[in-house]
Amino acid sequence: MRNSFADTFHELGQRDPRLCIVVADISPAGSIQKFRDAFPERFVNTGVAEQVMIGMTAGMAMRGLRPFAYTIATFALYRPFEMVRNDLAYQNLPVTIVGIGGGVAYSVLGGTHHAQEDVAIACGIPNLSVISPCDPLEVEAATRHCAVQTGGPIYMRLGKAGEPVLTRDAPDPFLFGKLRFLRRVPGAETCILAHGGIMRLAQQAADALAERGEPASLVSVHTLKPLDSAGLRAILASYRRVVVIEETSCQNGLGPMVKRIAWDMDADTRLHHFALRDEFTHVHGSHADVLASHGLTLENILAALDQRPAAGRRGRGAP
């Protein structure tokens, strides 16, 4: 994902002199180095100093530039939280905060580098939009949106590197603020919602369900704020079972937001939420190892779905 961001930013930056990137001692991935070489003045490294990284992007945006702030997600959002809130969101400035390693992608680096609460924190700030693309193609589309939009600040949550392309054949395009079907199965009883890099696991779950004759639709809810409430209501009204899989704390994130909508519309739908536990893990290993330490494995998801088959929450069978 970070290389897709870098390639897209480099391409856009060649045409738009307003685009700048401010990093906090993070080695620029891929094409950002090319951007840095070509436009050294539009690449700023504040060093290990995230507060001034965010604060200065506010001043740059006030002067008409389109700055991106870029570092590891925890450092992009947690350390300079008040600068994000006051300088960017309260003043509603078009700055993009790019957080690398959303979720537990920095799996061997420990809890200090795990962004578990970032979606909850970012969604809680008025004016701040939140995008969580699921693959390199969505990163490219999201970056193009961020580069030209004027609606206010955006937190863009990325994974790391090496994520597979999942959306090339999606029936829907990427549109900011709209959920997107990656797989639309007519007559299916189950719809799986996910965002971010864990979409790969969501896709595997959809494949496994299809193999056993329970085909499922698959949706990328890449824009977590503003949430596509109308799109979610339509899904909750159409499917007997809605499954949310996300790499964020179970306390917040997409799952509780979907549940809130389902309650408000009195949806007759069984809801499942698979997310990171409200715990710090001390497991160091592969990304999959750390996800497993939170219970996020394909086996666990399928087992849980087996126990509660699609039936609607009032227990009625499929029509």
Binding site: E41, G55, A58, M62
Partner: peptide, 29 residues
């Protein structure tokens, strides 16, 4: 911010200099 003559929202301390720095850098650019 947004009130005539006010160039930045302040009140929480420690924010103004970085915002001003960003403006000054943009002006240089």
């Amino acid at each position: 911010y947004g009130t005539p003559g006010i160039e930045a929202s302040t009140g929480s301390l420690g924010h103004g200099l970085a915002i001003g720095l960003g403006m000054a850098y943009a002006d240089k650019l």
